[in-house]
Computed example of a mutant assay.
Amino acid sequence: MSIQRRERSAALIYPYIHMLKCPICHGSMTTISPHSIQCMSRHTFDLAKQGYINFMTRFFKGNYDKRLFTAKRNILSQTEIYTPLTDIIRNYIEGYCHSKSQPLHILDAGAGEGSLLQQITQNTPAVGWGIDIAKEGIAMASSAYDQQIWFVGDLACSPFAEEQLDVILNILSPSNYEEFGRVMRKDGWIIKVIPRDRYLMEMRELLFRDRSHQLDGRDHVLDRFAKYHHLIDRIPLTYTLPVTKVMLDSLIHMTPLSWHGKESAISSVQESLSQITIDLEILVGSRRSVLQPLR
């Protein structure tokens, strides 16, 4: 099974090997087999048994463990908690497709366990690429979804050559706008999703009753986005859903919020949470050719 998965991944990547570069020497990738991919300087990166390529060039140990990614997989695959979000993104991408004669290349930067990229690109001619620094997430993604290409890699040093990607997705995940600008085509788009004040507010209120827990400053995020991109659209998206048993079992562990919550507060969430609010903003931008100073 692992050999077949590796062979399938190698065959999927082969037509697009020219889009990749070595994160060590920045030379072109030249050969790929079911076991590895190699650059012109013979730097070699292995294909894991799950089918992903590990392009990391430094050690990384994060808090994103298998439990978090399993919780995300369960809630994203078994509920419609983010369906309104993926529908909007798919509609935007379909509109962009009409101006293209070739399939779009879509990168999910911070893909996690892969479900959002799979939902956005399924039943489309788009080529989906997913990258994340957390190996546990990408291992799950490549094990479950074999129509996309999966990399473990660092957004600060991604394995793409210049101006290769049509759309970059950056959904509730950190950004590296300098690198996005390097790998995005001149007419490419970025679609970034950020939380607004009411995002998961019911869970945050239960977890942090005795102290405040603020989301990262939106103004700073918006300023940085505008520095690197022409803002095409801003779409607010807010809705409240009843919490089902599947959601309850996974919701508490699918975000880093639980890392900072007391055990008693986590128990309170599991006993008391009856509804959850999704409050997001979708930013659609095109590439700036020259960086402009913040105003």
Rank of each mutant, 00 (worst) to 15 (best):
S99R: 15
G188F: 12
R73S: 13
L165H: 08
P174M: 08
Y92L: 13
R73P: 01
V152E: 01
D154R: 05
A144L: 14
C157E: 09
L200I: 14
P159Y: 00
I120E: 02
P125I: 03
Y92N: 12
A144G: 03
Y64D: 12
E178A: 12
V167F: 04
D65A: 06
A109K: 08
P174S: 10
G110K: 09
Y92T: 07
Y199W: 00
P174C: 07
N91M: 07
N176D: 15
E80F: 10
V167P: 11
D87H: 07
Y145I: 00
W129F: 15
G110P: 02
E94L: 13
I194Y: 06
E162L: 09
R58K: 15
W129M: 11
L165G: 06
I88P: 01
N170F: 07
R198F: 07
R58F: 01
Q78R: 14
Q148I: 06
Y199I: 09
E179K: 08
L85I: 04
Y64L: 02
I106A: 02
D154C: 05
Y82M: 11
Y177P: 00
M184E: 07
L172Q: 08
I171R: 13
K100L: 07
P84L: 07
P103G: 00
C97Y: 00
T121Y: 03
V127F: 09
I191F: 08
N170C: 08
L85E: 11
L85H: 10
D108M: 01
T70S: 13
W150Y: 09
T83V: 12
I89S: 02
Q148V: 01
F160W: 08
G130V: 01
Y64Q: 04
Y64F: 07
A139E: 15
E113T: 04
K135Q: 15
S101M: 04
I120L: 02
R58E: 12
R182H: 13
K66V: 02
R198T: 00
I131C: 04
F151A: 13
Y177E: 03
I131A: 02
Y64A: 09
L68G: 03
H105Q: 09
R67Q: 15
I168A: 11
D154T: 01
L172T: 03
P174H: 11
R198D: 14
S173H: 05
